[in-house]
Design a protein around this nucleic acid. Sequence first.
DNA 1: ATGAAAGCGCTAACAG
DNA 2: CTGTTAGCGCTTTCAT
Lengths: 347, 347
Amino acid sequence: LELSVTIYDVAKKAGVGIGTVSRAINNSPQINTHTKDHVLKIIKELNYQPHALAQSLARKKTFTIASVVPFFTNYFFVELLKNVQKVLTQNNFDLILYSVDRMDRMSSVLDRVLSERRSDGVLLISIGINEEYGRKFVDTPVPVVILDNQHAGLDSITIANQSAAMTATEHLINLGHQHIGMVNGHLSSFPAVERLKGFKNALNAHNLTFHEEWLIGCDATEGEHGFNERAAYSAMQRFLAGKTERPSALFVASDVQALGVMRAAKESGLHIPQDLALVGFDDIEFAKFVGLTTMHQPIPEMGRLAVERLIERIQTDSEGGFYQEMQAELIVRETCGAHKNFQVHEL
Amino acid sequence: LELSVTIYDVAKKAGVGIGTVSRAINNSPQINTHTKDHVLKIIKELNYQPHALAQSLARKKTFTIASVVPFFTNYFFVELLKNVQKVLTQNNFDLILYSVDRMDRMSSVLDRVLSERRSDGVLLISIGINEEYGRKFVDTPVPVVILDNQHAGLDSITIANQSAAMTATEHLINLGHQHIGMVNGHLSSFPAVERLKGFKNALNAHNLTFHEEWLIGCDATEGEHGFNERAAYSAMQRFLAGKTERPSALFVASDVQALGVMRAAKESGLHIPQDLALVGFDDIEFAKFVGLTTMHQPIPEMGRLAVERLIERIQTDSEGGFYQEMQAELIVRETCGAHKNFQVHEL
DNA sequence: ATGAAAGCGCTAACAG
DNA sequence: CTGTTAGCGCTTTCAT
């Protein structure tokens, strides 16, 4: 209930000026070792802690970064965030987390992040920005890096979506599938667009025709551009109800969606992979558990790279605008039917 | 690349004093509507945004709360955090997130949170604090609320662990099970201790004996007091390898652990629920997907309540120390074998 | 090496 | 109503 002790209290009790106290805590070289020890002792006694906000204001440096994520429920974000946080902590940076649930609130969040100056840098995760904000972010002096999305002129790190989608699709093709559909997120999402391209490319490359009616889109109104279990479940339900002719295999744009597809398939009495082969995308923790064949994203590495890049930008104010693609890797499990004696998760 | 525009720039261009500008942005009643409009127009023109840190310093109020969570990978935290964030946003508060991976770093985080004054309040999620920090937190002027744990003298919100564990266990008993084991987290965790008590109580109440060897503890070295899939998987593997005699049912202290148990059981050729019935705890999103019978925690409500309580404390500096227990609810799905025609998740 | 003083950008009390 | 001024708690010249 005591008012907190300030640098003045320390200075007075130590019999020095506040400048000296400041030098002591910031271990400046311009201080006598002896006085420093003395000041440090007083600090301990008084249990003094510098006021972080005052420091930030004076230093013009906050040692925190702001991260904005879509209102996270997709475990891909979670795993990303976990690693982002980890690397941040290792570098003594704090994290202010903004999560955006409704797209119409996005701009207000972006504006705040841009100009409130509470952070030294911003990390946009899975956030697509329009031209207007692209310009703003390019012009702003605060470093920005985008993860799982991209924008010209801004540091961006993504998975190689197209080639990964091709790999996934070709795996199905190599397994003998000729009738392949795709369940995708909403095309307002960058990854969704890219993965669709890759899917089509694979089909083309193998002289298979792309069936528009086998492209199962997920409702973006359910949030996250349809990249969630529920949206995929509903979409799949509708799809199965409406068609008699269906593909023998599906490339699903994310693991959480694959879960929804599996649920819908099960309810329709379809067996996976016998009746329907599946390959997902992400390799979230749960994928292993349900035997989902999927494209593994190096999530920890992506998080690490993004943060390291951001911190580098902050500390060296180097030029922005680099774009890096990470490679995904096919993890063959059971849902694609690749193994003869597959053991899927059954209770 | 421009240095940011300050309140002085606005004042000068508007031909007023900075006080007036301040009044305009904080919509104080003590300002002429006309001048206010004028100032606001200039603000728009200059694209001025107040410096959040400077505001906080001057106001002695940050409008942000700090939350510390165990290095989150357990989906229970994630869902909690999601709702915490949501309610915070609704109240125009920001979130600084601290996550602690190693317990030995806990104290440094708690110290910082306590005295850096970057936040108006702190929310401890699933964090058990010792006497020393308990005292510190009780003495500090900054409001604290603890979620999913408790400490005397501090606002705490938990699920009614004991009675929920009893309910879960009794469900198994009512289904006819006489040989019931429990897989638990590490006993350094408050919920683990409470749930064990409830488990034993249920056994006692029904004249069933508690078998120490059927108490399957999870390794806390894997983090989160053993409340994770991996730890449970390993523990279950060891258990199944070592015993010939095993219980016919298991109460599992969390859903993520139940997932690990299921994985181990499957690998040992055990069928669930025929060979082994299971009831979990939490009702995370995936529980439904795998047909896990479990104790549902009202996670959104808990998050909401915690934040609302914290904000109330912040805004009214009322007394702390209230303790609230929320009730869990049994959700019967398939893993307990309750339904005759159960449909478990199978591919 | 150290104390004094000038900010950092804003709010709020104080005169008018 | 509005301008001026004194902080908020710290860092950082600038003298000494």
